[in-house]
């Protein structure tokens, strides 16, 4: 099971505690998270199930895309890119 954690900025808007889920890719583990937390999907994915433009995912220390692999002991972090104003 991979561990998936979300930025604190997202917790302001929607409950998203870290969870351990199955899946062999970033997309697969996120889908596993959304299966138990449907409201979270639209905060991370756009209408076409792409990562939102200003949402970044890291697998362990490495920036990752949705198709990148995830191992059972990996940690996946969902962050937002920062902007001012």
């Amino acid at each position: 099971m991979a561990r998936v954690a979300f930025t604190g900025n997202l917790k302001r808007h929607v409950a998203c505690p870290a969870v351990d889920v199955a899946g062999a890719s970033v997309r697969a583990v996120l889908e596993s998270v959304f299966a138990g937390n449907a409201r979270l999907r639209s905060y991370v994915f756009d209408d076409q199930d792409r990562l939102r433009r200003h949402v970044n995912v890291y697998v362990n220390e490495k920036r990752a895309d949705l198709d990148d692999p995830v191992g059972p002991r990996d940690e996946v972090f969902v962050f937002q890119s920062l902007a001012g104003g």
């Binding site: 991370v44 756009d46 939102r52 200003h54 949402v55 937002q80």
Partner: peptide, 8 residues
Amino acid sequence: SLGHFGVK
């Protein structure tokens, strides 16, 4: 319009 997290 949550910028990072889309429209709600």
